[in-house]
Design a protein around this nucleic acid. Sequence first.
DNA 1: TGGTGTGAACAACTTCACAGCG
DNA 2: CGCTGTGAAGTTGTTCACACCA
Lengths: 212, 212
Amino acid sequence: MAKPPKVPEATIKRLSIYMRVLKDLIKKDVTVISSAELADICGVNAAQIRKDLTYFGEFGIRGVGYYVNQLHLDIRKVLGLNQRRNVALVGVGNLGRALVSYRNFGDHGYNFAAAFDVNPDRIGETLAPGVVVHHMDDLPRVAAEQEIEIAIITTPAAAAQSAADRIVAAGIKGILNFAPTLLQVPDDVRVKRVDLTTEFDNLVYHLYTRSR
Amino acid sequence: MAKPPKVPEATIKRLSIYMRVLKDLIKKDVTVISSAELADICGVNAAQIRKDLTYFGEFGIRGVGYYVNQLHLDIRKVLGLNQRRNVALVGVGNLGRALVSYRNFGDHGYNFAAAFDVNPDRIGETLAPGVVVHHMDDLPRVAAEQEIEIAIITTPAAAAQSAADRIVAAGIKGILNFAPTLLQVPDDVRVKRVDLTTEFDNLVYHLYTRSR
DNA sequence: TGGTGTGAACAACTTCACAGCG
DNA sequence: CGCTGTGAAGTTGTTCACACCA
């Protein structure tokens, strides 16, 4: 809620990771953890963790550490993850189907609520319990009804921009783009690109460049 | 080949993007481009692009710009992408199957050469032309025969560390990890994590935090 | 005592601004 | 003349080191 100074983008990404680790620790019945221990698990510097956290408040106890359960909750709140979010799939191909059936999302509060495609053969199909394929034309209506907050684009590259335009027109402000295209969207819409070939490229560079 | 000073990690990631854009431009028969134009397409600063490139040489022509085709080639070389790389899939689930059938990898020089699983029902299955599912026990042999350089882990989270251990034992130095786990590997093995829930988290944070 | 919270030093990265060259 | 290549300035993010407190 409160946004005191400006928080580094990198901090936000790390909070997400801390959260995941804390969730694991809860399962292992760890109740308290120091910044040094958490840092070790996450592979970052201990001061980094403390600084990341103090952007949002004081969560620790001096001489003791952090209560795992409480910290997990606090970070969730900071990230805005204390409620379920409805997600729509746009583009029902192999990748899209795989993502819908991927368990992990549900565990983390993300709910596939609908899917969309332009291929008539796919309309009406049920991809998973509660996930029916609609025609793209119905996106505005269904998005409103199902309170969709995030769209995942898994269309072919050539269709991605047009899909994005229609997603934007339907009032959805968050897009995860799996198509290998740079999307053009208004300033108030946030796009995250997931480009697997870029990840490969990066891996290859580091494999064949001895520097670190 | 030559590694003069130290190149920022961020530069490497951007080079990958420039390459993709240049590839598009070639298709569109654009022969020359200025740093300003390229910057505009990629959504970065023009000086940034010029600086990124000069870490590796002088590729431009003053008063003119860069030859698209040549620059594309040069970046490929810098990134070590001037040859095909063989990739193995480890963990044959929905996601794994989708990745194998994903066209885009092939276009960018990545070749799925084999797949591995522990489930006897899947052994022997052909996922795509040339991609046969082997048992994990055969990983060392097949990896050597097929000259696998990169492994993709798409196992369940619980199996990911053990899969990684076997990948490392087989002498593979690059891992793309889709399982939601922090992997423990030796220093000379490079792991890239693709965590989709982390991407979601980030998106949500920015959606509900007016700051930029 | 031991670990957090944090100003201050440091390091990394980005942008500016302009000299220099095609 | 226009656009690259690049030192220098500016900005952002990380680590140190220690005061402070449970």
